[in-house]
Design a binder for these strands. Structure first.
Lengths: 244, 244
DNA sequence: GTCCCTAGCTTGTTTGAACAAGTTAAGGCA
DNA sequence: TGCCTTAACTTGTTCAAACAAGCTAGGGAC
């Protein structure tokens, strides 16, 4: 059962997305919401904190909270798992390993993955498609302790994240991402079917388990126009909204 | 004076960034921190919530919080104000208005800015440089009520955000951003000094005042290699303020 | 009518307490 | 030795209360 504040947050979110509380209008005050749900004000504050983190409402001391938007662009879920994001968005997703080999870790990689230089790592080059179109080229380096589990996966595994969770109970809990634009190299252009030198959206990331142990790092390149990252921020703190 | 939890957060952040609490090691428990700072546990929880939102620490129920990284991903500050981000990063930033004109709002724009079709808006094309190199091309549309204040600014104004704050007390409090990669068009290529068709990092945004009133929308294009967006995310667990 | 100021409302910060739920390490059993 | 259970610890959720700080509308002064 979800905690109380989560259910209140769900109810408020539904009201906002459904247009019952239009954009630009104030939310009911904390006192009113607390009375309506028969909870303490602190619980209501936790609920609206969720919406604030999602960027749906803004707040300033002394004034009522304001509804900022009606669309929750969940494109950022792509950072968590490409396959899960794609399926949630109603796309058919496929994947194919193009190359895969073990080697020793270079110094920079070892530092990134919490290993020592020369430790075994697994290189994987994987091409992903959305509705039959090649869209994403992943160059991933897995830490050695994870290599056996990855090697056991079929070459056309759709969701590596999900497969590793089911086989090993492994969860990619935390991620650090660097996003920029790069020109397509020769290999990029050939595999993604774009012009060499053309624009690609690049996402470099290091993923960490729940225990804080680095598991993989990756250089992912998206064909331009295929994926857009969406972010909402508030002066002071920014809020990325993953979730489902 | 900063609130208590903010000072505790500052202290913990400094300890993490300074390496006193190494990456991968646990933070002191809430009880210990509360005793050390002579505050209630709820206050400590607010402090660590700040660090969680910054992506510096991860947490799961039952286990101690873990330090995830040593760098605060503040590159996203660029979303708030290019000039302020650049100066904080130690760069010299300049800007130059290339074209500026009033016109009537199209239907889509009017919806985005909370206006009605045909209302006056101000188009501005602005080129920004970092340490003397052209890096960012901004195509901004300001809502009519903001146009007079923008038109009064000098053409080489470095920080529009700051200038509008000083002259009007205006704060760009909330932003919604869409990030992707596009090919440089003819005008883009000429002004940014890149090859036509080459990669640009595009950021489209709508900015809103503290009162929830849309103020501007913009299509910003960064030369590839000049700016990288950094994000930290946690699976499932959003940054939720504890207690209150 | 216009301006200013204040009373009341609203969000922000903090305390202290209690229980629930999940993790870990130590110790006992086979 | 190796496995298992449990006790102690740690984070998560919720309550009730109090005061601080910021905003807004309405009433009074001019």
């Amino acid at each position: 059962m979800h905690p109380r504040y989560a259910r209140i947050a769900d109810e408020l979110r539904a009201a906002i997305l459904g247009g019952e509380i239009p954009v630009g209008t104030p939310l009911p005050s904390e006192t009113v919401l607390a009375a309506r749900h028969k909870v303490a004000r602190g619980t209501v504050r936790q609920a609206v904190a969720v919406l604030t983190a999602e960027g749906l409402v803004g707040s300033r001391q002394g004034a009522r909270r304001i509804v900022l938007g009606r669309e929750r662009s969940q494109n950022f879920a792509v950072l968590h798992s490409f396959a899960q994001w794609a399926r949630a968005a109603g796309h058919e997703v496929t994947g194919q390993v193009i190359d895969q080999r073990r080697r020793g870790a270079a110094a920079a990689e070892a530092a990134r993955l919490g290993l020592t230089t020369g430790d075994s790592v697994l290189d994987v080059l994987r091409l992903r498609s959305l509705d039959g179109t090649a869209v994403l080229l992943e160059r991933t380096v897995y830490a050695g302790w994870l290599a056996p589990a990855v090697e056991r996966l079929p070459a056309d595994c759709d969701s590596v994240t999900q497969a590793l969770y089911e086989s090993r109970g492994l969860i990619f809990a935390y991620g650090e991402h660097l996003i920029d634009a790069v020109a397509a190299g020769t290999e990029d252009a050939r595999l993604l079917g774009v012009r060499r030198g053309g624009p690609l959206l690049r996402q470099r990331r290091v993923t960490t388990t729940r225990e804080g142990r680095p598991a993989e790092w990756s250089d992912d390149r998206y064909r331009a126009g295929s994926v857009t990252f969406a972010i909402r921020n508030a002066a002071g703190a920014l809020a990325v909204h993953p979730q489902d």
